[in-house]
Design a protein around this nucleic acid. Structure first.
Lengths: 225, 225
DNA sequence: AAATTGCTTAACCACTACTTAACTATTTTC
DNA sequence: GAAAATAGTTAAGTAGTGGTTAAGCAATTT
């Protein structure tokens, strides 16, 4: 989880307690640092102090929301702040908790959201795990070995279709109709461009390859489960 | 087959009976375990209890459906559950069976689906197994003894036609009309080229040969099955 | 307004599958 | 048994298919 708190003595207390509770915690001393961290890593939940130097909690939340609708965001606020102001500014935050708070209380609130998002995830997410290849269609992320690629929607659509029909010959027409909705010359060429892109990703895992069946289509060869 | 049942004493009874009936059974005590198992292995059919801790049967079915449209899913339900509720929630399930049920009944219901999917499978793929010769039309692969050849679509079309009419005389005209769509001098010569190619493949199996009936056509001689 | 993103279209090249051709071998017919 | 027809084989020719890169374009973001 991502923790942004400028009061470092408080920050460390929270961090240590959360680590004891089994979380992985990244502590950032200001808003910009939090944004930078969020860009690099994936976090399951974010805890943001509102009043911070260098981008406040609201700004950070907004930035995070641009990247992910799913991650739960909790604000840490001073008691002095009026409740309606916080609500008004709840720019994408899921809840807030006023200082001082007990670690117990924090943990409980976090659990609520983690349960909820885990559930949503499991209901909505579409994932494929094929050998070293880990593809989350919902997140548009493809992890192969140690490399991670952020896919575009089309790339993901195509890859999803390939995953759903791996190890059998797929006619070009079939792929086009299912991924693009229609089959004409130009879309066919467009598909070839996407095929090229996917093949670049697949280079990271020699067990996976997208074979051309000339005059017919493709076959997505993957290690059988 | 994948069996998810939280009542373990019942689970073991079902499992043992199905094993006696010749099935391989993996028993999971809760929904999440079932999902995890399904990700790892391939199952021919899934039997899911609806009420389970840690993801109920509906959730498991949904998850399974994301990965495969084909696998038959059967729900096990308590008698108390209203039928329409089950039907409404039939999130991708193929059938349900109310507890208590006889193993006989369960086996019969399972057979129905397994027959169906086996049939669908065989419709999806076209294969010919003739002596040592194993030809998958859908995969464009011809395996003879230890050699494997990747065929082109035309080669496969021609071979398929020959397999479908083996051990009888085929007029040249007949083959041309069925495989090329029309019959003229040049296509006839073209066919001869393909015949040559196929004969090269057949060299790997002396039991199979493509005989010329001079002035008439061919006969694809194969060991009778 | 400028930059970025995501897809399509274009252009170029390499390669493939099939046809055509050319030559040879076999069979049929007279 | 020679000429004609038919078929086998190999190679050359050709249209088409696919891979790749980059330019173009529309939509969105900064």
């Amino acid at each position: 989880m991502l923790l942004a708190e400028d009061d470092l003595s408080l920050g460390y207390v929270i961090k240590d307690n959360l680590i004891d509770a089994g979380y992985e915690v990244v502590l950032c001393p200001d808003g910009q640092a939090a944004i930078d961290k969020f860009d690099k890593d994936e976090f399951g939940i974010c805890l943001l102090d509102i009043m911070m130097p260098n981008k406040d909690g609201f700004a950070v939340a907004k930035k995070i929301r641009q990247q992910s609708d799913m991650v739960p965001i909790l604000f840490l606020t001073a008691r002095s702040m009026e409740e309606d102001k916080i609500k008004g500014f709840q720019s994408g935050a899921d809840d807030y908790i006023t200082k001082p708070f007990s670690i117990q209380e924090l943990l409980m609130r976090m659990e609520v959201f983690l349960r909820r998002t885990r559930k949503m995830h499991s209901e909505r997410s579409v994932n494929f795990i094929i050998g070293k290849l880990n593809f989350s269609y919902t997140d548009l992320k493809l992890i192969i070995g140690k490399e991670m690629f952020n896919l575009t929607q089309k790339e993901a659509d195509l890859l999803k279709f390939l995953c759903e029909h791996s190890n059998r010959i797929l006619k070009r027409e079939e792929v086009l109709l299912n991924v693009w909705g229609k089959d004409d010359y130009f879309l066919g060429r467009s598909m070839d461009v996407f095929i090229t892109k996917l093949r670049k990703y697949f280079k990271a895992d020699p067990e996976v390859n997208l074979e051309t069946i000339h005059g017919v289509g493709f076959r997505f060869n993957t290690p059988q489960g």
